Amino acid sequence: MPSRKKKLMFASAFFTSICSFVIVCLVLASKNWVSSNINFTEGNSSAIVTITYGIFEGVCSKKVIGGLETPANNFQVTAKLGKTAMKNLNVAIILFLVLSLLSSLMSAGFTCYNTVSNPYQTFLGPIGVYTWNSLSGSFILLTMILFAVNIEANKLSVELASNCVFSSSRYQNSINNYEYPYWLMLLILLLNVATIIIIIFYHQARYSKRKEQERPIENAPKDGILF
């Protein structure tokens, strides 16, 4: 049976892994990763398109300067993407988030297993926890980078907003604001790091205890040596 210290440390790591799993689920379900205001010219007038979206769904509305504001329209992100590069990046982002979700779940499973048993296989112990959390953090980091690239380099917001205006409208400029679901991914990274640090502390404490038990016999008290 695991020692009390091991149960406490791995239970803490299980908690951080579960929190990571839950937050990834929230990020996947969120529809407001970014909000953008895009300015277009339509003939002699100007229009501002306000668009808020995630990786699956979004909503856009248009306001003509000096005119009326159109009702908000919901749309599917992938269905509105005409350019292959944008669509491929969006699919890659979804894939990385799903992989991060699975990695967090595996980390939770490994830490839970270690709170109730001492696995014989090395990978089922700390090494497995390190591996799954490293993978989860890597997938989240890639997600954040690719999403920002899709917006800033590929002008994803402009592409989506163009579906809310006339084909003759001309793009002027845009302002992008990353919302809390996007920044929540930083919290997932911190939780992955926290899980690894907890297990490192346990591993170091176990190593120190083992070294104390393996002290050379010359360091033992002389009256305790039998000839």
Rank of each mutant, 00 (worst) to 15 (best):
M1E: 13
R4I: 07
R4K: 15
K5F: 12
A11N: 05
S17P: 00
I18F: 05
F21P: 04
V27M: 08
S30P: 00
K31D: 12
W33P: 00
W33L: 14
S35D: 06
N37L: 05
S45G: 06
S45E: 08
S46N: 03
S46P: 00
V49D: 00
T50Y: 03
I51E: 01
T52M: 08
Y53M: 04
I55T: 11
V59D: 03
C60I: 06
K62D: 06
V64H: 10
I65Y: 11
G66E: 14
G66H: 07
L68N: 15
T70P: 09
P71C: 04
N73A: 15
N73D: 13
V77P: 04
G82P: 03
K83R: 12
K87A: 09
A92Y: 03
F96P: 04
L97D: 08
V98Q: 07
L101A: 11
L102K: 04
L105V: 14
M106F: 13
G109A: 07
F110G: 06
T111E: 03
N118A: 11
P119Q: 13
P119Y: 05
Y120N: 13
P126H: 10
P126K: 14
I127W: 07
S138Q: 05
L141I: 08
L141P: 08
I145D: 06
F147K: 03
V149T: 08
I151T: 03
E152V: 10
L160W: 07
V165N: 10
F166M: 08
S167P: 00
S167K: 10
Y171I: 05
N173G: 07
I175G: 02
N176G: 04
N177T: 14
N177W: 09
N177C: 13
E179R: 15
Y180S: 14
P181V: 08
Y182S: 05
W183A: 05
L187T: 15
L189R: 03
L189K: 02
L191C: 03
V193M: 04
V193T: 08
V193L: 08
T195P: 01
I199Q: 00
F201R: 13
H203A: 04
S208M: 06
R215T: 06
I217Q: 05
I217L: 04
E218L: 05
N219E: 14
D223L: 12
G224Q: 13
I225T: 04
L226T: 10
